[in-house]
Write a protein that binds this DNA or RNA. Structure first.
Lengths: 248, 248
DNA sequence: ACGCTTTCGCTACGACCCGTAGCGTAATGG
DNA sequence: CCATTACGCTACGGGTCGTAGCGAAAGCGT
């Protein structure tokens, strides 16, 4: 063995410009603010970033993938503040989420790529990995903290717990998105307070597993409801060519 | 006064073909299914509908407005079934809503126009009037029914009540949309049951104006959080030219 | 220092779609 | 029968797409 590649994915030749990546993503967000999704063109982004249009196509397959990466960076700042109670923690996270969605580059970009992802499985997976999964971790973190405080009981059935996390996540993210983008009204403190009150009340005051009273089978869902924790390690965000310069 | 227009908006000349309208909207939905939003072209829709491309532009300002009208018709079938209890009624409506969102023409079309509406106020108003408002009426209907049953107390402060309706609407619609489009998992009976349980528990088991126990002021929200009930009567869907052939 | 490899900037290109103008024709109402 | 409006059709300039091809630049290994 003579030619050992010193580090993975640094094989040979001229390396990709890292500054170009950040410039392109920043230019994409700027273009989203000024033009919105539909009028954003890759040629324009390339000009703003000071690179050639062909460079863009060498790194991203198209507009969709580029915008996903550009928007994903906006969610890097999300944290779970320790405010002392479950309700207060949720309020804090929701307010942060709402603040991000209030920015025009997120508004116009995020929903557009989600819409596109309904016809493009690879794109949806990219969104899930780079945006959704990061948010879901916040829910897990908040639950762990609430359990440590004794506000929530420790989970018994892990599968049931996972389903609850998914439910909470859909409710929280969905409500904020709908309030912000569809109803077009600010998710300000008042709204977040009312929303959190309903959510926390609904979560804490319902018994662990009440009764499968009416409709029928409630807990014997088949073993594979989704594809939880089955699409992770391989086939990362899968850039067009090779390396993965996006923050990560 | 001699030239009395016999009926409003039927002034003179050749009337617009009503069949063409339905054909165009149906063709739009078909194109959404086959091509999705991004690859849908107006020329293609015109060909499918058997009309000239210019006819499309005489009636709709562009792709956005056309798709809004085409998708809006999908929501005509929404009803509030009387299942006997608030929880069961909500489950019924949510399941209907989920069924509509499961159709590909709604998935790819709805989110795309919502995304576009973030930069186009007229488009957002069109969506609100033709889609959102219709759904919100279901919430009002369900609440009235629950009040008649005694499950919910009659509202005291009408402004507070309106705010609650908006909150419920954002939570329900947002959660279903997020579950369906972002998480990309079916909003089936099991999920709807769990979601409804949390929502109904949160709504009913919180007293009308409880205690500002931990987080702080919970009820003294300022009087004007949004601009409710201020954009209604004038400037209807405002087609491009004149008449309004969409179902209505 | 020398190649080898990969990236970069640039130009040019065919293909496609947009949105409109113009024309002759069809369908109503007065 | 005439004014008015809608329709189908064709054609057009303008813009974007995504790719190909080229020479030059920037690293790595020997």
């Amino acid at each position: 063995m003579h030619s050992r590649t010193p580090s993975p994915a640094a094989r040979a030749g001229r390396p990709r410009s890292a500054t170009a990546d950040t410039a392109i993503l920043a230019a994409t967000r700027a273009a989203l603010v000024e033009l919105g999704w539909s009028k954003l063109t890759l040629g324009d982004v390339a000009t703003r970033a000071g690179v050639a249009k062909t460079t863009l196509y060498r790194r991203w397959a198209g507009k969709n993938e580029l915008v996903v990466d550009a928007v994903a960076e906006l969610f890097d700042e999300l944290r779970v503040p320790d405010r002392g109670s479950l309700a207060a923690d949720i309020e804090g996270v929701v307010l942060q989420f709402a603040a991000i969605l209030a920015r025009p580059e997120a508004r116009s970009g995020l929903m557009a790529v989600v819409a596109e992802s309904t016809r493009d499985d690879a794109l949806r997976e990219r969104i899930r990995a780079s945006i959704v999964e990061r948010q879901k971790r916040l829910v897990l973190e908040g639950r762990a903290r609430a359990q440590a405080r004794g506000e929530l009981p420790p989970e018994e059935d892990p599968e049931e717990a996972a389903r609850t996390v998914d439910l909470i996540f859909d409710v929280v993210a969905g409500a904020v998105v709908h309030r912000t983008l569809v109803s077009a009204q600010p998710a300000d403190e008042n709204w977040v307070r009312g929303f959190t009150r309903v959510l926390v009340t609904g979560l804490t005051s319902l018994p662990g597993r009440p009764q499968e009273h009416q409709t029928g089978t409630a807990a014997d869902s088949p073993p594979a409801p989704g594809n939880r924790a089955a699409t992770d390690s391989p086939s990362a965000p899968e850039r067009k060519a090779a390396d993965s310069p996006s923050g990560a």
